[in-house]
Write a protein that binds this DNA or RNA. Structure first.
Length: 288
DNA sequence: AACTCATCCAACCGCGGGCAT
DNA sequence: GATGCCCGCGGTTGGATGAGT
């Protein structure tokens, strides 16, 4: 059976404007995300449902971190990609502040090249690759898949619990949960607007100034300025190893404040806890 | 200054899974 | 079981921007 096109003809395409963002956010503030089919008409947007969902999940949703990936995030992505392949949504679920689109783009534009370069160097130097070099005993494919599945399940549950904890009013007793949940959306908008205004003011030359692109938080003083205005969000660099038990028992956790996230035994190897810039050859020989 | 080429990334497209009927 | 619809995912595209000449 054929599929009907998801979007009617006549819907708007291309970069989102601040006005559209405001419409979408204010609608979701009132009704919550979901039932995307009805969102465009209900919110008064000339967009298709997919576009609305994408805009929300990738840019407007609370708790999204923009900007440069940390070394730790890079390493995590590289490792997860090696294990899971191009399952960006799954990989992104390990990076609560990053979207699958962000992770995918970062992989395609930065990490893939970086790894290729490293692999070339390694081949020249006759060094074994990461996948083939783990010192752990080989698992059968079935065992490996079950283990990965179990780890994913465990991590997701832990993450859900952790995020639920974070949203509890105990963190900020003066605000309601709903307010806490969506407040950062307003901040997202503010940040986007800030970038937009900045571009508008500074560049008469960029006539078709792309609102979305102007939000590039990675590159500018805009970020430095706006960061201080934003409420604290989870930062991977703040994770602390609870117990440096490199055997990787299930009792090991990464701590982020009061939140504990179990270490995934099959996903994390010693590289996570080694020196920042160098990896032991024969385990995960990648220098990032 | 003007042009070309490379890079980045927001947004789009099409497919598959899951659910309801 | 067949069909239709919605949602989410991964791949791809195209405009904006930066670097090089």
């Amino acid at each position: 059976m054929g599929r009907l096109p998801c979007c009617d003809k006549g819907v708007k395409k291309g970069p989102w404007t601040p006005e559209e963002d405001l419409l979408l956010v204010s609608y979701i503030q009132q009704h919550g995300p979901g039932n995307w089919k009805t969102v465009p008409t209900s919110a008064g947007l000339m967009r298709c449902s997919k576009s609305c969902r994408l805009r929300w999940t990738n840019y407007l949703r609370p708790g999204i971190k923009r900007g440069n990936f940390t070394d730790q995030e890079e390493k995590l992505i590289v490792h997860l990609q090696e294990i899971l392949g191009n399952r960006w949504a799954t990989i992104a679920s390990y990076l609560p502040e990053r979207t699958d689109n962000d992770v995918k783009n970062y992989w395609n534009t930065h990490l893939k090249k970086k790894l290729k370069k490293i692999q070339t160097l390694n081949q020249e130097g006759g060094v074994v690759t990461a996948a083939s070099s783990t010192s752990q005993p080989a698992l059968s494919k079935g065992q490996w898949e079950r283990r990965v599945q179990a780890d994913i399940h465990m991590a997701k549950r832990a993450l859900d619990e952790a995020l639920a904890l974070q949203d509890k009013p105990t963190v900020s007793p003066t605000t309601t949960t709903a307010t806490t949940t969506y407040a950062s959306s307003a901040e997202n908008i503010a940040r986007l607007l800030q970038g937009w205004m900045k571009n508008k003011n500074s560049s008469a030359k960029t006539t078709g100034s792309n609102y979305s692109t102007s939000t590039d938080a990675s590159s500018s003083a805009t970020v430095a300025a706006s960061k201080s205005d934003l409420s604290p969000v989870m930062d991977c660099s703040l994770f602390k190893l609870d117990s440096p038990n490199l055997e990787g028992s299930e009792t090991d956790h990464l701590n982020h404040g009061d939140i504990k996230i179990p270490i995934l035994t099959s996903l994390f190897e010693t590289w996570l806890f080694e020196e920042e810039d160098s990896m032991e050859v024969g385990r995960f020989d990648i220098i990032l």
